[in-house]
Design a binder for these strands. Structure first.
Length: 491
DNA sequence: TGAAATGTTGGGGCG
DNA sequence: ACGCCCCAACATTTC
């Protein structure tokens, strides 16, 4: 009779270090079956794009290699998690199922179903938090309600951060393996979506995997961390950590990042306390996004703030297409959209500029932009992506006022003062000087001729008049506020 | 984690 | 010398 086993279900936690579910699985001293399931019915698969799939495949193969070093294996399956795990549990006499929790509404349902079914079958199910500093229900106002403002949320969270950040589980030392292994899908035979050939940029730009994530963190801490606060808004300098894809796949935990930042000298970094460093604040926004999604799951679709439900949105499909393909005639917008399409990643500043342009200037609903980002971003967390779009469009809990509209030309000059970033992604205008490159349509004919650019032929005319679109947006939003107010009198 | 419009101030040119 | 106008430069308000 073969010994009973412990199933370790890997999800968006593709790492061995600081992985609480793994630690607990090892502690059972039973043979461990590490499983990853390509959920063919899940939200994750439906809404994600080729960049995401490329990274996932790389990361799975790296995780698989790491497990091999312990004589273990990553069992890869596709199908529904419930039936897949049930089958393995029955066949291999599993007594425990351990995993790290996820917080998307669809994943919560899946977790609940699995836990119920397994408990009924007398199998011990334990889940852990290895993805967040604080789970959505952990940070609440004194009256027990969730926070709706970032600053008060994060202040409260920071006061408890020592409790959550002290424990970092080290790499496993001993490992028990089964005598026989369940079948595993070779990655190359998995769902076709994961095996499509994608952009040439991905392999050059990214190195997925836990080791690479840790290395990226270390080199960021030694280099760009100090200038992060100023350089993170510069698209030409790559001043950000670029850790978001690693975080998204759980190759590194926020705990590890916070601990890394805390290990640096506050004085050298111009801080009194490294927790005030902007990088920590950005992790705070990630936490806040999960806090809001967890406590108000419906905001994923409809927005928290309903004041702008009456905005008369544009249904101009051409402007949406122009935005998606980087053909708007605004170089910084086109550069960002093309960069996103090619590499699956752009910095936060570019995300704000691009989304403000879509929602405020093109007057297209934020959901359209959010689903495009979800498909193209390599790092798209449902929570953070939704929060970003709601923040910029005014639908969020703690978002910008409706009249705050980014001017793409001014933003362009700030984020890319020398036009380096634009030249890289919009070669059509690369012969323009850094003073002219931000707004080609305003450049004198003679200069355009010398630079070999026929506006409207070689590079598109701006698809909207910025000033007009700004006015239109202000009127539309204001109109909606008034309608909302009059519809809600006395209710 | 805006930008534009409007208001105020102060220095210099000029009659 | 003086007041007036012009207009940067900066500050405040408004969207």
């Amino acid at each position: 009779m073969p010994p009973s086993t412990t199933i370790l279900w890997f999800r968006s936690d593709l790492r061995l270090e600081d992985n609480l579910a793994l630690g607990a699985a090892l502690a059972t001293r039973k043979p461990i079956l590490p499983v990853f399931i390509w959920d063919t019915e899940g939200q994750d698969i439906k809404s994600t794009g080729p960049h995401y799939c490329w990274w996932l495949k790389e990361s799975l193969s790296i995780l698989s290699n790491s497990l091999n070093r312990y004589g273990s294996k990553l069992i890869i399956r596709q199908g529904s998690p419930l039936s897949t795990l049930s089958n393995i549990a029955t066949e291999y006499d599993a007594r425990h199922l351990f995993f790290n929790r996820r917080y998307e509404p669809s994943e919560i349902r899946i977790q609940r179903d699995i836990t119920d079914k397994f408990n009924q079958a007398g199998i011990d199910v334990k889940s852990f938090n290895s993805t967040l500093l604080f789970e959505p229900h952990e940070i609440l106002k004194p009256n027990g309600e969730p926070y709706e403002r970032f600053s008060s949320f994060w202040n409260q969270a920071l006061s408890k951060i020592n409790e959550t950040c002290h424990s970092s589980v080290k790499n496993p030392s001993s490992w028990t393996n089964p005598e026989n292994w369940p079948d595993s899908f070779p990655l190359s035979l998995l769902h076709p979506k994961i095996n499509v050939t994608t952009s040439e940029y991905l392999g050059k730009m990214w190195a997925p995997g836990e080791t690479s994530a840790t290395r990226s963190l270390q080199s960021f801490l030694q280099g760009k961390l100090q200038r992060y606060e100023v350089d993170r808004d510069r698209s030409d300098l790559c001043g950000t950590s670029q850790l978001s894809p690693h975080l998204h796949f759980g190759e590194i935990s926020p705990r590890q990042i916070i601990n890394g930042v805390m290990s640096k000298s506050p004085i050298e970094n111009g801080q009194f306390n490294m927790l005030n460093h902007k990088l920590c604040t950005e992790l705070g926004w990630r936490e806040f996004a999960y806090h809001i999604l967890g406590n108000f799951p419906q905001t994923n679709k409809s927005g928290f703030n309903r004041k702008f439900d009456y905005v008369p949105w544009s249904d101009n499909i051409h402007s949406l297409t122009a935005w998606q393909t980087g053909q708007t005639g605004f170089p910084i917008i086109d550069a960002g959209m093309r960069n996103l399409a090619s590499t699956g990643w752009i910095n936060n500043r570019m995300r704000m500029i691009l989304s403000s342009f879509l929602v405020k200037n093109l007057l297209i609903p934020w959901q359209n932009g959010a689903s495009w980002f979800e498909k193209t971003l390599i790092d798209a967390d449902l929570a953070s992506n939704t929060m970003g779009w709601q923040w910029i469009s005014g639908f969020g809990t703690d978002s910008v006022p409706y009249f705050r509209i980014f001017n793409p030309v001014i933003q362009s000059k700030k984020t890319d003062p020398y036009g380096v970033y634009i030249k890289r992604w919009v070669p059509e205008v690369s012969k323009l000087s850094y003073t002219n490159i931000h707004e080609p349509s305003m450049v004198e004919d003679g200069i355009l001729r010398k630079a070999n650019i026929r506006i409207g032929v070689d590079y598109p005319l701006p698809i909207i008049d910025y000033k007009v679109s700004r006015r239109r947006s202000l009127d539309a939003y204001k109109h909606s506020t008034e309608l909302y107010a009059s519809n809600n009198v006395g209710s």
